[in-house]
Nucleic acid binder design. Sequence first.
DNA 1: CGCCTGTGTTTGGCTCGTCTAACTGTGGGA
DNA 2: TCCCACAGTTAGACGAGCCAAACACAGGCG
Lengths: 226, 226
Amino acid sequence: MSLTARVEDYLESVLEIEMSGDIATVTQLAKNLGVTKATVTAALKRLDDSGLLEHERYGDVMLTAAGREKALAVYRRHEFLSDFFVRILGFTRERAQNVACVMEHEIDESTERRLAAFTDALALAERNGEAWLDELKGRMDSPHELPVPLCLMEDGSGGVIARITAQYELRKRLNAAGFAPGVDISDIRKTEGLPGGVFTFNMNGMGIRFGIAEASAVWLYQPERV
Amino acid sequence: MSLTARVEDYLESVLEIEMSGDIATVTQLAKNLGVTKATVTAALKRLDDSGLLEHERYGDVMLTAAGREKALAVYRRHEFLSDFFVRILGFTRERAQNVACVMEHEIDESTERRLAAFTDALALAERNGEAWLDELKGRMDSPHELPVPLCLMEDGSGGVIARITAQYELRKRLNAAGFAPGVDISDIRKTEGLPGGVFTFNMNGMGIRFGIAEASAVWLYQPERV
DNA sequence: CGCCTGTGTTTGGCTCGTCTAACTGTGGGA
DNA sequence: TCCCACAGTTAGACGAGCCAAACACAGGCG
């Protein structure tokens, strides 16, 4: 049942044209999707074969019920995601479009529901004027450094912990041991030993040893390079 | 310069194997990426041609400096996105992987920085025990309806406004006219007139007319179907 | 009625990513 | 030392998705 992403794009585009009150034409689709008419004809053939729309030579392009349902799901996700990226995360419209275009083919319904709950809750907070959201916006407008996992830092280097990407026990263990954003780490060394290497470094004056699992879960902001 | 997504996957996989302390082999890559060895050999050829790694017949697979840099960027985005989807949005690990896998090839650095600012701010709020976050989590754990744009509702139907997906002037206009989440709308009718149709409906006892632009920006929860 | 313009189709050709099946190299153990 | 198991490669094929160029059709206008 899983259609290719591209096929879903064609379906979505047909729906968009219908929504604007026109009947989809090959030329229009070609323009919207940025391909040649020949490519559209070929794609319509495949879509017709799989029963998602009807298209006879020189005839109109009409979605079937199945096709329309699929198209609506894709359209909904697209609008929804691009709205999320623009309004909540502050992406540019263009970038939001790109990301939404790709993601719309990948998320399932339950995921969509979760995401919807998230954005609707944030929108609510916005209307209620939660102070915390202002701080968030402020942060997002200033440039933000990109961290590197500890295991990829150069020998002898150090940095400040940015985040911990781990779940469950490992997360708890690191937490309990004092690893948290903002903490300083220095004098990282990689030596042989375990498969994946052994990483030693200094935190709060203590020497610590990591295996690869821990060392790839702790992300550091690198100090300013000179 | 823009590599295909798949090529970036190969690069990323090589880096992951290196990070775990091994040297990447064709067999290992085939397993990690879920393809046959023949496919890997072909991909390595393309990657070698574009100068991202070095690979001679029966030789080791070694990233070049350019390849390693590219691979790190992809890896960082991947880890970062999947962490975001799991920790912040509560996706399943598997779904988060899928989405991250696709998105990692699509976002650029400035977008990544924005997203990083967002998640880091949320993580901070979490540590500070912001009450508002608890409410958010609560909402996300209960099933959430999926809305439909007004322009796609059936004739005579109605519903409750879920959200407004519009920017700038249109958003302001709708806002000023009283369109907001929670408001009831009934007796939606579509008639011909403008290109795209004219939509009339009832809100707060008033009759309102929409063009297609407005009607596709207002999303409604459909009432329970019987 | 016939012609012209523009819409839609066909043809042939390309790349990427994938496969299966057959082949070739390599390195460790008997 | 030689041989075998397995790692890696090559050959040949396929579908999706794209293109350019040539062709076919349809509808409006003179």
